[in-house]
Design a protein around this nucleic acid. Structure first.
Lengths: 119, 119
DNA sequence: ACCATTGATTACCTTTAGGAAAGTGACTTT
DNA sequence: AAAGTCACTTTCCTAAAGGTAATCAATGGT
């Protein structure tokens, strides 16, 4: 029997979806990255403000996650010329492509929460 | 200075987005769950077929992830009345809400891949 | 000189994810 | 009786994620 599943299992189409999906998962999965990005969607934030908004994260982890996002060109780092030096983080244009992921996750999370906590 | 960020930091609105987002991340993050769900979007699959399609996963991990998805009512488990017993896994209606997440991730992953491998 | 602020970094530790390999049990085929 | 199939399960292990706490360097204020 040849199901539609079997029919597309060897196609380029499948790879064209699977590989990018794995890339995205590898880049975004973990406890913090998506939360950090969400907090930056409203505009640039300094390290300290981000640290306060992303509840529960430690400075060590925040620093590491930001470096990771910067390397992947999703976030820019700008040192400001202020009295105690401050550093601003902002999303790049490239990060706009994450907005739909965020929206979809929030939508799903809401539905899921309603379903689990008794419909 | 009161930025738009500061303006909404204490609102119910922010929580209404942050809590579901954290739920979704907790449920879906990890190396395999989203891949498994993607493979089930085309229809029910038996354990063995799923194991072959989700390249690289071990039976132990596949089994664990499926139990987890079942508990969260995203997947159903059906024992079939076949010669060697087979078990089919299928997405629930509730899992439809994940489709937009999948699409968004694939779209983002494609763009990201193009950008990283030299625009 | 001393303290405060900001943005980290370091050392240390615990927890969790996940991989490899083998085994189990129900059943069928040879 | 032996071997194979399917769906797991178990054991053992490593690597990565992530938490706590302390420290550092630059700067400015008192």
């Amino acid at each position: 029997m040849k199901t539609s599943a079997a029919a597309c299992s060897n196609t380029a189409f499948w790879q064209e979806r699977t590989l990018p999906l794995r890339d995205a998962i590898e880049l975004l999965s973990g406890k913090w990255k998506i939360c950090i990005i969400q907090n930056l969607t409203i505009g640039a934030l300094r390290f300290k403000d981000l640290h306060e908004r992303v509840r529960g994260i430690s400075p060590k982890v925040l620093s590491k996650e930001l470096q990771d996002l910067e390397q992947n060109q999703l976030v820019t780092r700008t040192v400001n010329d202020t009295r105690p030096v401050t550093v601003s983080y902002a999303l790049t244009e490239h990060a706009d492509a994450i907005q739909p992921v965020l929206d979809a996750l929030i939508e799903f999370g809401s539905k899921h929460r309603k379903m689990i906590t008794g419909k």
